[in-house]
Design a protein around this nucleic acid. Structure first.
Length: 447
RNA sequence: GGACCGGUAGUUCAAUCUGGUCAGAGCACCGGCCUGUCACGCCGGAAGUUGCGGGUUCGAGUCCCGUCCGGUCCGCCA
């Protein structure tokens, strides 16, 4: 019998700890990001798990290594960590570099990279970038984007856990769709047809009666044949649903709390990525303006000198105009829009008793793009059955869902944030495919 | 599903409108030089069936038709 010792894991060096190790002898692994050869030797920039590290190697005694060294090799370098004056922090966010004594190539790639990963900015056509995703994501700036995306999920988990939410995992293979309108993918399920989840909505609502507050981070699938920079057919949804709310404002406040947390976490733990990507991070807001859809149409109408009052939803140009208005007037980059008409919202949306025809629902706009939809849901069984009928749906087909209502549900509401969209607007990236690791769209199923 | 745009070295682009020294540049690559670079620098070299098929023409990357592939935007939505 062999034994795997838990403490063995502690022997793995992290780049974060290297700064404190100046003067020590270490052996480090990494992949060769770039090589700058000079007459006396070379600078080797090693790509490691959380950053880059400059390594200095002289010719003497290392002739063979230097001759064979090339990009994307896996290498092991031994030497002394020493203080370094690094001009460009994107090369090395640390304050040390490795003075190499010896090294070896652990693995040599079959072919050289077909794109120039050593460039500071990976200047690729989006199509080339996506086709070569396993390679292009190795570039420091490309992988930094997904690191920011990680921060947003970390903050979501952490904040909601602190607020008493339970993280759940709901099925992605379903018997029916939750969202009206959006097309749904069909899959073969043994001898039956099943569908890919468009949203964890039903299960979140059931979860409210179980844990009172639930959250899920998971994939959702939309079979819409759209071809735009803000749509993909599989994306990551940051979901929450909470019981005993007094109104949708409670849900909106919870979202604000999360956003503040996310921005604080980014500032605290992701300064390397933010600097590398030259991110203009918003100040954590103390409040966010909230307007009705009618007001939004009016504001957009004035900004664009066009009449939107008959539109049931916000046009993309309106989203941009409304955001510009509140940035200029209030200095705020977030805007809530509320009271969407009944026909534009799913059957589980609570109707507003004050303004017939409207629902207690909201969107959150950020930098010109809708990144969230949420609202109060129907908790009363009779009310839900009646609304299903009004939508032309058969309540019998929603029997397992309606069990939640039938056996009692607290007043509740929730929301869903599009992770890739939030990340893209935060980073000022035009196409959400670039904030998706392996995007799925109408044309793309690989890599 | 609709509208518009594009496809030229490994890669990012120029030359297309106005057909004729128009097969060009940067980076990557190969060779040489460089004792601190940091998107290193300097000198030299190799690299393209201009997506594919057809047509017009003395001549097509360029104009026309077809076809394949892709992008942007709209409907819808996160």
């Amino acid at each position: 019998m062999d034994k795997i010792w838990a403490k063995a894991a502690e022997g793995l060096l992290s780049a974060g700890s290297l700064e404190k190790m100046a003067g020590e002898s270490v052996t480090l692994h990494g992949m060769v990001q770039r090589i700058r050869r000079l007459g006396w030797g070379a600078f080797i920039v090693m790509r490691r798990h959380d950053g880059l590290l400059q390594c200095v190697i002289g010719n003497e005694g290392n002739e063979k290594l230097l001759e064979k060294l090339s990009e994307e090799q896996c290498a092991e370098l031994s030497g002394t960590l020493q203080e370094a004056d690094i001009k460009d922090a994107s090369i090395n966010p640390s304050t040390v570099e490795l003075q190499v004594d010896s090294g070896r190539i652990i693995h040599d790639p079959e072919v050289r990279p077909s794109v120039d990963l050593a460039k500071k900015v990976l200047d690729l056509h989006i199509d080339t970038n996506l086709d070569l995703r396993p390679l292009s994501l190795r570039h420091p700036m490309e992988r930094a984007r997904l690191k920011v995306s990680e921060a947003l999920t970390r903050a979501f988990r952490g904040y909601l856990y602190d607020q008493g939410f339970t993280e759940i995992h709901t099925p992605k293979i379903c018997v029916a769709g939750a969202e009206g309108g959006a097309n749904i993918f069909t899959v073969e399920y043994f001898d039956r047809k099943a569908f890919l989840a468009q949203s964890p909505q039903f299960y979140k609502q059931m979860g409210v009666a179980i844990y009172e507050r639930v959250t899920e981070i998971g994939p959702v699938f939309r079979a819409e044949p759209h071809q735009t920079s803000r749509h993909v057919n599989e994306y990551t949804s940051l979901d929450l649903e909470m019981g005993f709310i007094s109104g949708q404002e409670d849900v909106m406040a919870m979202e604000m709390g999360y956003i503040r947390k996310a921005l604080q976490l980014l500032r605290r733990d992701y300064s390397y990525q933010l600097q590398l990507l030259d991110v203009n991070l918003p100040e954590p807001p103390d409040w966010i303006p909230s307007i009705t859809l009618r007001d939004a149409h009016e504001i957009a109408g004035e900004m664009l000198e066009e009449d939107f009052s008959d539109e049931p939803d916000l046009e993309p140009v309106e989203e941009k105009a409304v955001c510009r208005y509140f940035l200029e007037s209030e200095g705020c980059e977030f805007v809530f829009v509320t009271h969407f008409p009944r026909e534009k919202r799913p059957f589980y949306a609570m109707d507003d008793p004050q303004t017939p025809g409207d629902t207690l629902s909201f969107d959150l706009l950020f930098r010109g793009l809708e990144i969230t939809t949420g609202g109060q849901r129907i908790h009363d069984y009779d009310m839900q059955v009646e609304k299903l009928r009004r939508f032309g749906l058969d309540p019998n087909e929603f029997e397992s869902y309606l069990m939640a209502h039938k056996f009692g549900l607290p007043p509740h509401g929730g929301l869903a944030i599009g992770l890739e969209r939030f990340t893209a607007r935060l980073l000022d990236v035009e196409n959400i495919r670039l904030t998706t690791m392996f995007p799925r769209d109408v044309k793309r199923l690989t890599p």
